[in-house]
Structure formats: C-alpha cells, structure tokens
C-alpha cells in the first residue's frame, strides 16, 4: 500500500472537519474523492501534505509514518499537491514558478523536469517569461500542475483541478490526468465534477461531513443510486 490513512481527524478551532477518515491508495492507482461543498475534501488533502494540523489518526506513506512530518519532508518523499485555486506565485515568471516546484530536487532534475512540463503544456513555454498572474485560469491550472510535476511526485494530490474552467479546458485537464495515470503516476483526485472524476478513477471514496460514507470502484460508484442522486444529478 502506498498511502494508508487511518482514523484521521482534524478540526478548525473546535469545529471538526474530518471525523476519522480511513483511505488507502495503492501504487499506480487513480483514486477519486467526491463529496459536496464543505465535506472536508480540501482539509483531507491539506492534512496529507502536512499544512493542516491533525488531532488524531495516522498517515503512512510507503511504510513510513508521516503523520507529523513537516510539509517539506513529505514533498521530498514524493507527496506533492496541486492546491485548490491553483495558488501560483503571481508576480514570479512562469519559469520561476516551475523552477520553484523543483525546490528540493537537483539542478539536473529541474532542467529535465522543465523540458517535460513544456512538452506537456506547450503554451507554458511560449509564456515562460510572463508573470504567472497574467495567465488565464486554464493556463494557471496547467502551471500549477506543471509545478507539482517538477517535484517528481510519487503520489500526486489534485484538488479540484477543473474548478471554474470552461468545458473545453475541463476536458483538456482530464486528458492530462489520464496521461499522467498512463505514465503510472499515482493520483489522489478531488473534483466537484463527480462524473468525470469517477469515470477516470480506478476506485473512489465518497465523503460526507468529514466521514467516508461509501467506497468502491469507479464504475461501481457511477452506478450507485445514492451517488447518482446526490452527486450526478440524475
């Protein structure tokens, strides 16, 4: 098992956001996490990256207990996140954003990574000298994904990569997720577009107010009556 989360709890002040989460991700899998607004998806991903305190439970990554590891240690191990809302470094250039993605990697790895990202998103290459803040929403999403790939992720955490994008761009982002999966990157994907997320996922979890209420393979959940009603609008 690559990622193993057991009984994870987290709260904002005294208000619990995660109430004992159990989640597993195997190497090479694409696991989706769906749930309504405020279910705790972002909180879970942030806890996995070490930027959100946890009050109980354990997180194991490739056998190591990383429950209380610092965020940079997790990135070094290969747990890398594309945060909700892209969070690019607006005033810095596109290329600097990418270079910083490889902050913990060697110069050679960074140079290789940049070429790989430019091959994947040619538009970023043409805008390499522009400030990231000047990019369109879709381009910023590509930059955020490229920046995460620069860190050579073993487990990629994607938080709402298609949020706020036009349908054509959503399709492009999902194509990119499928390409990463085909290149055997392990992915934990959160998306409000439950149908698309479940369609690409090997397995999925459904989160409701801080608890996992359902899990199963992607196709299984796509067929599930409860899921259809609550998340697919059928």
């Amino acid at each position: 098992m690559m990622l193993e989360v057991e009984g994870l709890c987290s709260q904002y002040g005294r208000i619990p956001a995660l109430k004992g989460i159990d989640v597993q991700v195997r190497e090479g899998e694409l696991v989706a996490l769906v749930g309504a607004n405020g279910a705790g998806k972002t909180t879970l991903l942030r806890a996995l990256s070490g930027v959100q305190p946890v009050s109980a439970g354990r997180v194991h990554f490739e056998g190591a207990d990383i429950t209380s590891a610092a965020p940079d240690k997790r990135v070094r191990l290969g747990v890398v996140q594309v945060p909700e809302g892209r969070q690019v470094f607006g005033p810095l250039s596109v290329e600097d954003n990418l270079r910083l993605g490889a902050y913990l990697r060697s110069r050679a790895e960074a140079a290789l990574g940049i070429e790989r990202v430019y091959a994947m998103f040619p538009v970023l290459k043409s805008k390499r000298r522009e400030p990231a803040g000047a990019l369109s929403g879709g381009q910023q999403q590509m930059l955020a994904m490229g920046r995460a790939l620069m860190a050579l992720p073993r487990l990629l955490l994607l938080d709402e990569p298609s949020m706020g994008l036009a349908p054509k761009l959503v399709e492009e982002i999902f194509a990119c997720v499928r390409a990463l999966k085909a290149a055997s990157t392990t992915i934990f994907l959160v998306d409000q577009n439950a149908r698309a997320a479940l369609a690409v996922a090997d397995r999925a979890y459904v989160l409701e107010t801080g608890r996992v209420v359902l899990s199963g393979s992607g196709p299984e959940l796509l067929d599930n009556e409860q899921v259809k009603e609550a998340y697919l609008g059928l």
Partner: peptide, 21 residues
C-alpha cells in the same frame, strides 16, 4: 533559488510550503 523561494513565500505561504520550501 533561495532568493526566489523567499519571494515566493511572501507571495503565497501555502503554495511555498506545498513546493517544499
């Protein structure tokens, strides 16, 4: 790189942490 990392931290602390700064 260190200087840029310091700038990046000032612009977006969360994103800086997420890239491992």
């Amino acid at each position: 790189l260190l200087g840029k990392a310091m700038l990046a931290t000032s612009h977006n602390r969360l994103a800086a942490e997420l890239v491992g700064i």
